[in-house]
Design a protein around this nucleic acid. Structure first.
Lengths: 230, 230
DNA sequence: AGTTGGCTGTGACTTAAGTCATCATCGTGA
DNA sequence: TCACGATGATGACTTAAGTCACAGCCAACT
């Protein structure tokens, strides 16, 4: 399978507004890399020569503790970019990044990105907007980890997952969970067993209903109140 | 006491490279605001009309839990800016900001900042660098909160405080602690009593020595090893 | 069909962290 | 100068969260 580099670049917020000529020039210099599920793209602290555009698939950026426990910082899917920070501050990769599924990324040299930012103020502005969003989410995560307990963090996470992926119906808001408890744990800052028990508790309280891999939220509002307040 | 708005703006990374004419124009439109120690400048979620330049003093940006516990996200001093995010993504203030000491800030309308970013690519680039730094620190904080225990977080924090403010001498690296245990706790994500005990433990292990408000780190390396590894 | 390996749920236990209460000290403002 | 409130140390207690161990399941692969 070959991919259309041009289309992939055009699909990003960062490069979407370039002219066809500029896009082609960038596409020619872009280097494709394929990742198997779980494969690591780079490790936190590695020297960074540029950023990556996700053409197909999804990746997670995370930090690892000594015991091997992971904390996911953010997840990005096709159309997004990762490792922008080294472009702007010339420092190493801030997090380790691994593929969540079969993924194809395009490497873009940071000098190219810099030049584009300086030539096109609106690209720089798009990058600013992008980083602003990241920073907001990161601050949310800090707040959650520091000031909320696991059950609340889980409730909050389920709610936002449902709002992104879910559909509204007779059972209320519902969606299909495609992650393992382990993966959820890594995102909300906990461990497998605790997530398992927390899910049980949420069910017992009637805040969610679980049927196989389908999770329903009968009363969105009630779950929200629980998530940030108890 | 009157302050020199022009000088304050010139001292920032963001606006430092503007011409005198542009600076004056900006200074004329800047609105000064004085804050007493502890006074709140704005609250997370408030509508935001622009950013603030810190002319004198220092502020902390934090989130508050239901129980009133605070988690500091970042601290900024004279010469820095705060609340840049709303400028770039047109959303409300992400954190609550309060003065750590007597502080004077200058309010700059976000439309002015946007215009400057679009007219001067290097201002946009400076902003990108600024946000990149914030994001790195924020990710560090997430990692620490999720994967390290309090004693390690404290060790790490002491080390970086010492490296910024401290001096090297016979006793090793030493510096004056001008924060209360309460304040340290809010920064590393814990509470007063736990910080107090953690400090005692670090002393018992010979990793630090405390004399009044002076803290010495006899073996910087040993403390660092302890901070990220145990 | 059978085996292997990952995923889940759960009981039992440990422990880091947080809470509560007390007391001495200190600094600041009235 | 006095007094109050903030600060800090510390003992005693509680508890959320994490660890360990085990058993049942399911899906994939040989």
């Amino acid at each position: 399978m070959t991919i259309d580099k041009l289309a992939a670049l055009r699909g990003t917020i960062l490069f979407g507004e370039l002219t066809e000529t500029e896009l082609s020039a960038l596409a020619e210099r872009a280097v494709e890399r394929r990742l198997a599920r779980g494969e690591v793209l780079f490790i936190a602290g590695d020297e960074a020569a540029g950023l990556f555009v996700i053409a197909v698939g999804a990746v997670r950026a995370y930090r690892e503790g000594l015991d091997g426990r992971e904390q996911v910082i953010h997840v990005e899917r096709a159309g997004a970019t990762i490792a922008e920070l080294p472009v702007f501050d010339d420092r190493p990769y801030p997090s380790t990044v691994a593929a969540e599924e079969e993924t194809i990324v395009l490497f873009i040299d940071k000098r190219d990105v810099k030049r584009l930012c300086l030539d096109h103020p609106n690209i720089a502005f798009a990058a600013l907007k992008l980083l602003a969003g990241r920073l907001r989410r990161c601050a949310e995560l800090v707040e959650a980890l520091s000031l909320r307990e696991v059950d609340q963090r889980l409730a909050h996470w389920l709610l936002s997952a449902a709002r992104v992926r879910g559909t509204r119906g007779g059972e209320g808001l519902q969606f299909t969970m495609h992650l393992t408890n382990q993966q959820i744990a890594a995102r909300i800052g906990s461990v497998r067993e605790v997530v398992s028990r927390a899910l049980t508790r949420l069910q017992q309280n009637g805040l969610i209903a679980v049927d196989g891999r389908t999770i329903s939220i009968p009363d969105e509002n009630a779950l929200e109140i629980y998530a940030d307040g108890s």
